[in-house]
Amino acid sequence: MGIIISLVFLTLLVVNVDLSASLRVLTRLDVHHLLIPFILSIFALLCRPWRWQIIFTASARPRYGSCFKVHSISLMSNNLLPIRGGDMLRCFLIAREKPFPGLSVSIASLVLEKLLDGLALLVIVLTTFMFITPPQWLARLAMIAGLIFGSTLFLLICLRILPHRIQTMVQYSVHWIPLKGLKARIVAIFQRFSGGLTGIRSLPQLGALLILTGFTWVTEAAIFWAMAPVLNISLSIPAAFVISAVLGLGLMIPAGPAFIGSYEFFIVSTMGLFGIESEVALALALVLHAWVIVITTGIGFAVMGGSGIQLFHLSSTKYEKHNNSETDIRSN
């Protein structure tokens, strides 16, 4: 499914963009402007694991080093696996790290992370609607994102206010299952998952997460803005914010490995809103995409090598660690 979606986006680009003109734009690549994007990229890669660490409750919070290692491997894996497979891999890997947050709690932390990102990006995109008339595709993207993240936020609020009632509803919904052991396991997994969703328990913790979320997306927008001079393109800071926000929302759509096709499509489409030609926008999208893939893959492999992890270990039972709070990671 992810590969088909990527092929659809690639087809739209090939039909609507003069590829030879984009290649001519690429010939004016100036690598002397890459220092600032490199520094900003490192800041972003250091900030995201820190925010993810804070999402966990204090009793099940992994060390920053563990979060950075797992997050780096996850980003690298997203370049190799379809439909953001690296994100789910991240949950499995961090569940094996001390103090053993558990797979259910790890998945809950991923849900909260995506919720924070989605709401932040949605605010940026909706603010843009005050100044421009959005094209139909962007309005639909914002509507779908609003439904998804609004529903997730509503669920989070319900779990916070009515945890026992939600648990009763889950128990009632699985009462038809004949195996008592399986029924009890489903309820137990839900309890741990809901406990992870309510991991934000104080105003200072929420404030830190909001600040780090803002800093993360300011950095992402700054990378777009700083990368434009590499191709001698003039890009304003507000435009960079909108492009990074739309791209962030667009990449939440399942796609093939490394988001090939969808990455370029959303950048080209959004830059067109600011009067930038499609051929020029595609050239910048290709440079940005290649930059992200090289940085994340390189750091991911370096982290794996430094940790003594090999690719086949990621799916090997030999690498699994048991978790006292989760009876068995594989069974979950």
Rank of each mutant, 00 (worst) to 15 (best):
M252S: 14
I243M: 14
V268L: 10
E264H: 15
N232T: 14
S278D: 13
A221K: 02
L288R: 04
M252D: 08
S278A: 15
S262K: 03
P257L: 08
T270P: 05
V294I: 15
V287F: 01
F215E: 10
F241E: 00
I237R: 08
L235N: 09
P229K: 04
V294F: 14
I267Y: 03
F265D: 00
T270M: 05
G272N: 08
A255K: 04
I253T: 12
L282I: 11
V246K: 04
T213G: 06
I237V: 14
V287L: 08
M252H: 11
W225P: 00
L235A: 09
F215W: 13
G214L: 09
L273E: 07
L247S: 08
L249W: 03
L282N: 04
P257T: 12
M227G: 02
L286C: 11
I276G: 02
A290H: 09
F241D: 00
E277H: 12
T297I: 11
A226I: 00
Y263G: 02
T270H: 07
V218C: 12
I223S: 04
V246E: 03
A239K: 00
L284N: 06
N232C: 10
L235Y: 04
V292T: 13
P238A: 09
I276E: 05
G214A: 13
V292S: 13
P254E: 07
A245H: 04
G261F: 00
F241A: 05
L235S: 06
V242H: 05
S262G: 13
A255Y: 01
T219E: 03
M271Y: 02
V294Q: 12
G275H: 11
I295A: 13
A221W: 00
T216H: 09
G214Y: 08
A281Y: 00
M227P: 02
L251A: 12
F274I: 10
N232G: 15
A245I: 01
F266M: 06
V218M: 13
A281E: 03
I267W: 00
G214Q: 11
G261Y: 02
W291V: 05
S244Q: 12
L286I: 15
E220N: 14
F259A: 15
V268D: 05
P254D: 09
T297Q: 11
A245R: 01
V280L: 12
A240S: 15
T216I: 10
G248Q: 07
A283R: 00
P238D: 11
A283F: 10
M271V: 09
G275Q: 12
G214M: 11
E277Q: 14
L286T: 13
T216S: 14
A226F: 06
V287M: 06
L249V: 08
E279S: 15
A239V: 06
F224Q: 06
L249S: 08
A283I: 07
F265W: 14
A285H: 04
A222Y: 07
S262Q: 11
M252C: 14
V246A: 11
V246H: 03
P229T: 06
A285G: 07
I295D: 10
F259H: 15
L212R: 04
V230M: 03
W291S: 10
H289L: 04
F265I: 04
A239R: 00
A283H: 01
S244V: 10
M227A: 13
M271F: 10
W217E: 01
L288P: 01
L249M: 14
V218A: 13
W225E: 03
A255C: 12
A290N: 13
I295V: 15
N232F: 13
G250N: 05
W225D: 04
F259K: 06
P229G: 08
I267E: 02
